[in-house]
């Protein structure tokens, strides 16, 4: 654990002073005059990044539980498709998956009149449903593999005890198996969620305006290269730090 005292070593004080000087130099001599103009757009982009990350993480996790369960104890006709799904998702680049869904499905759907006439069509014409779908499937693929290990890792005696109490299978799963499996993989889940955050800028390539897309727009509008990118890196670092803190709190909350 990092304590306050460990920051007071001489070399760290010098490094922090240097760091402060660099920050000051950045603030004073780099160009930040574009900031007020693009701030509202940047906030909107930040909101898009965050909701895409949260929604796809939650949906992906919900999908990952059955995938992990199927691989851990399912019969072969469930375990095999689940394993193939995980292999395909983990074996191909996410960018390719996003483009496959967006351009592929996007060019396929308009050919069917009943899809064009349906209630969903106004949504299917936009980019974000494809982004959410691709990121959800990707998280489910990576997490399904993690959950497989988590489900097989729960001690047999716990499940046998539940069974001997006469618990029904679903109650047993809800009360004993799932909570223990999640507790065991909480640190991994935190890491995977940061990876998911780092995957969100890819949705900018299919015209979703997230914070990354805003920084690209600043770059192409004003020809300022480094400032938006540096700010973007800082924003992502702050979000990653917040995720780390949140998961640390979760980990302290669950009894060991």
């Amino acid at each position: 654990m990092i304590t306050f005292k460990s920051f007071l070593q001489p070399h760290r004080i010098v490094m922090m002073a240097l760091f402060g000087a660099v920050v000051l130099w950045c603030a004073l001599s780099l160009r930040w005059d574009w900031l007020p103009k693009y701030a509202p757009l940047a906030l909107e982009g930040l909101w898009t990044t965050i909701w895409i990350m949260v929604v796809t993480t939650v949906l992906g996790f919900v999908l990952a539980v059955p995938i992990g369960l199927a691989q851990a104890i399912g019969p072969w006709y469930l375990a095999m498709p689940a394993r193939v799904f995980c292999t395909i998702i983990r074996g191909t680049p996410l960018l390719l998956q996003i483009w496959l869904l967006y351009y592929g499905l996007g060019s396929l759907f308009p050919q069917f009149p009943w899809i064009r006439g349906s209630e969903l069509w106004p949504y299917l014409r936009q980019a974000w449903p494809y982004a959410v779908l691709a990121l959800t499937l990707s998280y489910a693929g990576y997490e399904g593999e993690v959950m497989r290990g988590a489900f097989s890792g729960v001690v047999k005696g716990q499940l046998e005890a539940a069974k001997s109490f006469g618990m029904r299978r679903f109650t047993m799963f809800r009360r004993i198996w799932l909570p223990q499996a999640i507790r065991n993989v909480l640190p991994t889940l935190g890491g995977e969620t940061i990876l998911q955050l780092k995957a969100t800028p890819l949705v900018a390539t299919i015209t979703v305006i997230d914070i990354y897309a805003v920084s690209s727009r600043v770059r192409s509008d004003t020809f300022i290269v480094y400032e938006p990118l540096l700010l973007l890196a800082v924003v992502y670092m702050v979000i990653a730090g917040l995720i780390t803190l949140a998961f640390r709190r979760f980990e302290n909350m669950v009894p060991r």
Binding site: Q9, H11, R12, M15, I194, L197, K198, A199, T200, P201, L202, Y212, V225, Y226, L229, L230, L232, A233, Y236, M237, A240, G241
Partner: peptide, 29 residues
């Protein structure tokens, strides 16, 4: 030494917290 260790800790932490896409652009420019 302590300085090298701290610098390397900053390097690994920053690189692992920032999306690859952003790093690629920064390092490329």
């Amino acid at each position: 030494g302590p300085v090298i260790r701290d610098l390397l800790a900053i390097y690994t932490t920053v690189i692992r917290a920032v999306p690859e896409l952003v790093l690629i652009l920064i390092l490329y420019y």
